[in-house]
Amino acid sequence: MTDVILEARDLKKYYPVTKGLLQRTIGWVRAVDGISFTIERGKTLSLVGESGAGKTTVAKAVLLLEKLTSGSILFEGKDIYRFSKSQLKMEYRPRVQSVQQNPWSSMNPRMRVRDIIAEPLVVNTKRTKEEIRSRVLEILDQVGLAPNQVDYYPHEFSGGQRQRIAVARALALNPDLIVLDEPVSALDVSIRAQIMNLLKDLQDQYNLSYLVIAHNLATVRFMSHTVAIMYLGEIVEFGEAEELFTRPLHPYTRALISASMLTLPEDEDKGVEKIILSGEMPSPLNPPPGCRFHTRCVEATDKCSKDVPEVREIGQQRVKCHLYADPSVRSAVSKGPDAGPAGK
């Protein structure tokens, strides 16, 4: 039996589109449309997708920053929407923390580092000033910052250091789950590795679970145990990271991997071609009928534009695509990414 810390069941978030003087609702933006996943204790789940796929909405729902239209979120088996206010404050909020994408805006510019890291402690615990002070110094050390930096303001730090502060703040309450919303994409290349290593070390040390929101596939492969690929409010493919990256099933996953793969000029001379998708992701206001990806899919058939594909299990992976409806096709299409290997 696996130890599931958080389970999302059929999450939906529709935003009304209103028009006119009376704010009449003329349609719904289906930002998230029926998403389910589980996060195991001590493991990382990544939600991957392009902007508009709905991944941030999911993160916000988990952090209770956004109310869902329907669906439930179970934390250690308990539905958090049934929690009372005090239960949320005692049992959920302190145990689920977050690190945001932009370390330049995620901190109040008028607070010192000391107060920024202490805030979760001040709000959620009844510790004395002395206890808080020593806890702040302790975490600061863990994320690799010097104790004499506690009295600085955020703007006095570089991006990487700020992200360390953000991690420290998330760690202050010893949470079980941390939502990492694009934790490194705002950072410089050489700093990203520092932060990713730090996050991994902390995960091992404290048996933390991570929900990572990301668009960079290489980052995701490095960080995650399981991966969910999102397209237009749906999860199109879900599986163990290793399997999913070595044997992508959904045409969208394959295109994404191909687009993100490092190809050198000579690889191209050798005939390695990238899968270039045509067009752009349609608006979630009027998602295409049938499979939502069919408008851009290279393997689309008539069926794809009519019927919504079911989610099928192929080994450990779950994929939402008509290609896998017929059992005989399964083995034929289960090949690795098309892009070739690149230099060392």
Binding site: Q97, S105, N108, M111, V123, R169
Partner: peptide
């Protein structure tokens, strides 16, 4: 709308705390 207010809400900060500690100093 800013990220740090969202963060304070994630941390469970009360409405009055957010107004006093996060909004007010930045309006000042």
């Amino acid at each position: 709308q800013s990220d740090f207010v969202a963060q304070a809400r994630v941390n469970g900060a009360s409405t009055s705390r957010i107004m006093l500690r996060h909004i007010f100093p930045n309006v000042l």
